[in-house]
Write a protein that binds this DNA or RNA. Sequence first.
DNA 1: TGGTAACCTTC
DNA 2: AAGGTTACC
Length: 399
Amino acid sequence: MATFWRAFPCSKAELDLGLTLACGQSFRWAKIQGALTGVLAGRVWRLSQTDTHILYQVIGHVDNQPLPSRPGRKKQKRKSNTPIESNNGIVEKKIKSDEKAATKEQPKMMTQAMTSNTKVTKIKTEDGEEITLKTEDGLAEENIEVSILRDYFQLDVKLTDLYEQWCKDDPHFKQVSPNFTGIRMLRQDPVENLFSFICSSNNHISRISGMVERLCEAYSAQLCEVCGVTYYAFPTVSALAGKGVEERLRKLGFGYRARYISETAQYIMKQGGESWLYNLRTLPYEEAKAELIKLSGVGAKVADCVCLMSMDKTGAIPVDTHVWQIVNRDYKHKLGTTKTLTDKTYKEIGDFFRQLWGPYAGWAHSVLFAADLRKFQELKSSPEKKGDIKKSMKKKKSR
DNA sequence: TGGTAACCTTC
DNA sequence: AAGGTTACC
């Protein structure tokens, strides 16, 4: 059976996998043998892309994972002249790796072939309803896989239209964004998103990634093993609410965040478990944020991260020291510079950007955020204007 | 409200 | 310091 990738159409301007999966929204995607590899919806994926298609392989999965349903998901208004792509896998097509030049560089991997026998798949929705799928040739599974990816990458949101509008509304966005196209907000699982960002406080991406992996290893079931690498699901809240979790996490190097994780897991269980957390998706932004801030280790910034990245609150703006720097460097003329980041200025900054960028302000923020990451600096095509360099040198000297 | 320090570990 | 939260003045 030939190793093959499945594919569906998607331009790099709509989704840049490399940027989107490495800009600090999520911490579990890693580039392995040329493909972005990670766990999503109970499956282990390899992702890659060409100029015109997203390519994917599922290299392992379990059957009893909840299917991401999306109650109350608001669809973005689209311009009437924008063609609507079919979003249920109708347009996808198989591309054999030896037929597509762009995949030639991908090393060969053992891939689970779809069985040609009749297959029975049991799926649980978030509401606990169990659905049984019988498929003749794996086609239904294939449709499910595309649905999972389309949901995770929120491909019904037309990113290029948003960029166009942000460029019109904000000269600085217009200047920065051309080298950083295709950066979109993921629609993450709230549990993984919340606990990952509790780990993020006073911390950097590489260490957060390590901590999250150790959390999965210690507290979740093994999903599968592929090419000697073991993949884990993200732990359930229940598992993190157990006895001795804080002590164990401290030994695993979580520092003071060990207590935050333990306390937050226990609090969520007291509220009724994961369904309570999922239900925050149905609340308005301010209310969902207020609930999240009650959790141990969750302040305004982490709450906004969760609102934006897993609660469908497209206008949430997490203001961290990084955004704080961007504001004071690139928007100070519009926003009066202040010394410290108080609750008041935090809110002012969010309101300012929401007014500037509109309802998807949080998405726009992530573009400028990524453009400021050190690891992406090489992507800036032309070096900084000389004037800017001189200015920044001057600043440093005057300190 | 604004300001400051402690909190864990590591690149 | 590093992409913060909490406690206390």
